[in-house]
């Protein structure tokens, strides 16, 4: 997760952490810390850019809830950007197609050809290997996790994470929307059959 503040093509401050668990705890203080470091306040914010996924559901929801709520409280628009786009922005220069590959767990990946665009793919790494164009570069935690599979047919640039600082700079050419219009990119239906009986400490009122 990460937060950045930028203006007029300059990143004023940024912070990120590789947490896989403490998103809810860290997000609000991180917003405050980054603004403080940039010498700005929330009142200075004109628009919010948010990564709408795909990714881990919990992390996505903390980020998107924060963006929507800030937009509501500050009456500013929100720009959505996908994890695929943010991975492409973080990827090294490459002559062939760049695929952003996000680990979807349960032996699946979410993938997108960020060079040509097109609809995102949801499939097993083995299936993706078979459809990758020649001279492809793969980036993202899905590419990292299944590195051996992808390395057989493509290049893999390891350790690439969505570039939050770049997101802060992307705003000028994109029009924002009201926070209520922002839709998470889940790319998969909830797994009702598996989860139906898990209500740890739950309380159906």
């Amino acid at each position: 997760m990460g937060v950045a503040v930028g203006t007029d093509g300059t990143v004023l401050a940024k912070c990120s952490s590789l947490t896989d668990r403490r998103h809810a705890e860290e997000m609000t203080p991180m917003v405050q810390a980054v603004l403080d470091e940039a010498g700005r306040t929330l009142a200075d914010v004109d628009r919010i850019v948010v990564d709408v996924g795909p990714g881990r559901y919990t992390g996505m929801r903390v980020g998107i809830t924060t963006a929507k709520t800030l937009a509501f409280a500050l009456s500013v628009p929100v720009v959505s950007i996908t994890s695929f786009e943010l991975l492409a922005l973080a990827a090294p220069d490459h002559r062939g197609p760049v695929f952003a590959v996000v680990d979807a767990r349960r032996n699946q990946v979410f993938a997108a050809n960020t060079t040509t665009g097109g609809p995102p793919l949801v499939m097993s790494p083995d299936e993706l290997v078979r459809v990758l164009p020649a001279e492809t570069l793969c980036v993202g935690d899905g590419a990292d996790r299944y590195r051996d599979e992808f390395a057989a047919v493509a290049e893999v640039a390891p350790g690439i994470v969505p570039n939050v600082a770049a997101a802060a700079l992307l705003t000028p050419d994109r029009s924002g929307e009201p926070g209520t219009e922002i839709q998470p990119l889940y790319l998969r239906e909830p797994d009702a059959a598996i989860n139906i009986k898990t209500r740890p400490g739950g309380d159906s009122s």
Binding site: A24, T28, T65, T69, G201, G202
Partner: peptide, 23 residues
């Protein structure tokens, strides 16, 4: 902030903390 379903709780907690910060 509890007890309840983790993912469900996090939406309310995150929204409340964000409002507290913004306001």
């Amino acid at each position: 902030n509890g007890p309840g379903l983790n993912g469900a709780l996090l939406v309310g907690v995150t929204a409340a903390k964000t409002l507290a910060l913004a306001w």
